[in-house]
Amino acid sequence: MHIQIFPNWFKKLSLIVFLFASFLAGADDFLRGYSAGYNGSPVNYTESKFEDSKVVTNMLGGKNIIHLLEILAVLALISYMLSKEKVEDDYINILRLESYQLSFLVISVTALLFHTLHQEFFYGVYDSVSLFVWLYLIIFYFKKRLA
């Protein structure tokens, strides 16, 4: 099965888009956590005193843009995943397939385990997709390096 549809240079482009989107999407949360840490108080996002630290959100025009940026970050990771290696061959395809299998297995087992321990716990769509992509990329990277 060959689902690597993007050329190798797409990896760099995807990485730039991912870093850019993640930075903007997470900037306000980072600022809130940073200032709370600096004050020595625990981070509580429901407290109104943190409401004013929405510099980036206000600058970009609202929560919807931040939500779109989060989706863009995951899409960038998926396109990184679907980009070809410099050299594509049978063995790389086997490593890729093994990485997919292992990622799926780890996500399924941990999701079931958490759900067993806490009945109300479920991975959301965003969590499961981003977790799967991250796991796949890490496993595939180490499989290639160790091979």
């Binding site: 594509e88 061959d89 049978d90 063995y91």
Partner: peptide, 26 residues
């Protein structure tokens, strides 16, 4: 060797360690 054969270095390593059987073409 991988460059001369047009395959990845990982493939050569795996073949040498008997972890992977190459295709007929390779």
């Amino acid at each position: 060797l991988a460059e001369k054969l047009g395959v990845s270095r990982q493939s050569i390593h795996a073949i040498e360690r008997n972890k992977f059987n190459p295709s007929v073409t390779l």
